[in-house]
Write a protein that binds this DNA or RNA. Structure first.
Lengths: 208, 208
DNA sequence: CCCACAATACCACTTTAGTGTGATTTTTCT
DNA sequence: AGAAAAATCACACTAAAGTGGTATTGTGGG
């Protein structure tokens, strides 16, 4: 039995979804809420398996609500519901922790499918959204600057990135720490940086 | 007109795909190749719009081939072809730069659809693969360990991650470098690390 | 064959980072 | 108001990292 909660401000849609879920085998409705705050409060204490979450809500929006619930119950799954496919909102929702989404005017069968798909470990999203996710995930592939480095230097950089000391790198590669030092110096010159973390950021990309 | 190249070692499949493409409106076949090396050489000089790439090939595999071609022609798109849905290979192919994939026993219509979808800016992948991509993209959102840190410490860590020296951080925040040193020491103790890069990796996640 | 480059190694020296301890002030929470 | 946590500063010391120069060996490309 999959427990499903609904957070949706439009009463008609909310009730339709509720009925749809209640009349579907294996699905049970864990509660319906008209705003993020109420839903957040209830679901924090009584987690559901899956939440159908409207993106546009009065007060706190659905994306923020996902973020907060996800931080408390990481295993809870979210499907975002929107009127139209606003790529950006959906994308942000995915970043916040949602796993899928559907359009409010999708037919009931599709909604049921999406929930099943999600519960089976899939991610109900359109190819367009998939592409955006993929593009942002396929991080800048590693900066072009890496081509400036030799094989050995690249290897060094990898170990540097992992936080090994010169001595440890030297032992690992069976060379002297002086050689390690030299290689790393060459790397810094090529990349125009003067510390380990700058080199790593330059090649593998910044975070934070 | 969309030009499509095929790299596939099985002659029957290769020819079927070729015929499928040649007989479809708007599609033209830019060449067929039985191995990655030949395809790589030709396509480097004569880029196609889309490449249907087998994953398992004699010699260089399709994933490496994608990686190399993508580095030379970033705009070239790739659809991986596999016999069965080997999640891991597909996932690696996506990391290497492929945008979609299909199964060799998908029916012709589905193959045509996938190509159109790709060309239209979508990403033909199954929900299962989408989920994996999403999960790795939605990276641990910042390690839980960060909750151990105070506001000021988190701020420090952010600057540390960017590669600022203690002195620079001190100037930026108008405090003494001794204070900076102290904060950072506290961070290291809380995270059980003993260097800047380890702390950064612990919180923001490793790369490479 | 020779040159350029990569990889190896050493030394001397400076700077930055990290450790240990202690103390004062400000905030925050109860 | 009072205790706890956070933020501030200082000093002494050690360990690592980074800089600059020099030299040898092997290897691949012209």
């Amino acid at each position: 039995m999959i427990s499903i909660a609904i957070i949706e401000d439009d009463e008609d849609i909310r009730e339709s979804l509720k009925i749809l879920i209640q009349t579907t085998e294996d699905f049970t409705c864990a509660g319906t809420f008209a705003d993020a705050e109420t839903g957040l409060e209830f679901l924090t204490a009584n987690p559901a398996d899956i939440v159908l979450m409207d993106i546009h809500l009065p007060g706190m929006d659905g994306i923020e609500c996902v973020r907060q619930l996800k931080s408390v119950h990481p295993e809870m799954q979210f499907i975002m519901c929107t009127i139209f496919q606003d790529d950006n909102s959906v994308f942000n929702a995915l970043k916040a922790g949602a796993t899928g989404y559907l359009l409010k005017n999708d037919d009931p069968g599709k909604i049921i499918d999406a929930i099943h798909e999600l519960h089976a470990g899939g991610s109900p999203i359109t190819p367009q959204i998939a592409r955006r996710v993929m593009e942002s995930f396929k991080r800048p592939a590693v900066n072009d600057a890496i081509h400036l480095l030799t094989k050995r230097e690249t290897e060094m950089l990898g170990l540097l990135a992992k936080g090994f000391r010169y001595k440890e790198i030297a032992d690992k590669l069976c060379i002297s720490t002086e050689t390690v030092r030299k290689h790393i110096n060459n790397i810094y010159q090529k990349l125009h940086v003067q510390s380990r973390i700058e080199a790593v950021n330059k090649i593998f990309g910044d975070r934070s």
